[in-house]
Amino acid sequence: MRQVYSILVNNHAGVLSHVAGLFTRRGYNIESIAAGPTEDATITRIVIVAFGEENELDQIAKQLRKLYDVREVEQISYNQAVTRELVLATIKAPISQRSEVIQLANAFGAQVINMTDDTVTLEASGNDHKVRTLLKAFEGYGISQMARTGMISLPYDGMPEDWEPIA
């Protein structure tokens, strides 16, 4: 299964490698990792997406909580949190196809940030599903370069306690 971890850590040197090390030791590939400051300058939020067996993923969460520099670990399901990812992609778009590509970009609310004679570079953000659909839509034209930030996430505020996610 796929798991999103939202991890609050002390903003100390070496914490990121320590956290990542827990995953590598168990042989789990981290699909994406994003780290950045929070509202408190002493705290960093790391968001990790990883694949694994359910009990193993829970075990990793417990081990993360044990690290001295880890403050909080949340295992997030999609329905309970806002998740966003930023993607930059250069699409092959000769003049004959340029307007088609831009039209498609508009449909996804993506911004054109650079253009050459035969490429268009786009910036788009959205949840995991949107980013994947978008990239799939441009696959046919050819994506010559791409960079993704990895997912960042915040739990929804004010979620009622008895709220159950729709499966």
């Binding site: 009990n55 829970d58 075990q59 417990k62 081990q63 909580r65 044990k66």
Partner: peptide
């Protein structure tokens, strides 16, 4: 005392 030992 160590939650990671339980169920491991």
């Amino acid at each position: 005392i160590d939650p990671t030992a339980i169920g491991k």
